[in-house]
Design a protein around this nucleic acid. Sequence first.
DNA 1: AAGTTGTACGAACGATCGTACAATTAGTTG
DNA 2: CAACTAATTGTACGATCGTTCGTACAACTT
Lengths: 201, 201
Amino acid sequence: MGGVKVDGRVERGEQTRRQILRRAAVIASVEGLEGLSIGRLATELEISKSGVFAHFGSKEELQLATVRAAARIFVDEVITPAGAATGLARLERLLDGWLAYSERRTFPGGCFFYSVQAEFDARTGRVRDSIAEFDRGWVELIRTAAADVPDLAADPAQLAFELVAYLQLANARSVLHDDPDVYAHARAAVRAALDRATRRA
Amino acid sequence: MGGVKVDGRVERGEQTRRQILRRAAVIASVEGLEGLSIGRLATELEISKSGVFAHFGSKEELQLATVRAAARIFVDEVITPAGAATGLARLERLLDGWLAYSERRTFPGGCFFYSVQAEFDARTGRVRDSIAEFDRGWVELIRTAAADVPDLAADPAQLAFELVAYLQLANARSVLHDDPDVYAHARAAVRAALDRATRRA
DNA sequence: AAGTTGTACGAACGATCGTACAATTAGTTG
DNA sequence: CAACTAATTGTACGATCGTTCGTACAACTT
């Protein structure tokens, strides 16, 4: 497809940009999107500070681009692997995929979005808005997946709330206490909730 | 008693200190404990920057004192009101008390500890340790209260995990989306979980 | 009264923050 | 080759950060 125009300069620039954003997402999952600084990013990547800055034009744009980059990683690691499954299988694969994504520390600070949500939830501005929108989409995805389970004996929205709660707390407590065992609690809670919601009357 | 020694200077100092910490907890629930700056604190309270600093000697000590101050508020608003209740009533009062504490925005950024946990969970140091210890104590309190429910038909640790998960997600989503309705989801989830765990075989 | 203690202050420190802009380098064209 | 363009750099700025220091003053002790 139209990949004929290959300007080596632009290509290199985009690669640098990807490299910056990858590192930015890693840092932000630990230090937050405010703790993420352009100077530190430059030092760690051995790029000039102005070189980093030029790619985004402002810190807010860097933060927004970092959120988008993390969202792509999230989709690749959690949503895409669920593939074309339907019904209960799809819901299970999404939940299992999320727990695995959190547990394997795709981001060193645990789930990127858990970190930045808590950081920006009480603020205003475009960064908060983009984070909130992503969260809405994720919960809506789980709710829809739940609603697509045949003969569901529960309110999909209520079930989605409970399921997402288990995932979030497992991530939070595992990071805070260096305790991998909480994932077992989360998996047990997920299994029990799905059993309840799918057992035939 | 023994409150006979009343050094007016010390008294005034302690009042200033309390005033600083009250504001610090409010700010930190929105901006985080790192976003909390001594200069801003001084400006808002109309105290000199060095005056604020002198009370703590370092930013880390200010952060630690802020965590302790927030912990006292949390105890006053959530744990003390549960009073001397026992069994299921105690567990219910703790959970309801927490949801009310979050919902009424005792701290403008929602639960103080949710905010700072997410901020410090992947870091190291005394601030993170004190936050982690507080969280351990809270979950342990819920687990113990659950274990004290007569004829409990569930593993207390597992039940505590699920209950705390509902509380945390309600707080998180209500702040992020300015949506008070999530508390209804949390209350329904809590009620259902307690019903399940206490219905007689 | 004189001396001591504790709080609060103002000024300044070096470091780092985000940002601006001109100069430079590397790659693409004619 | 020169002309052009896009990515990157160096230098500098004003602001703010946490921190240090010497000082002022009120309140306590003797």
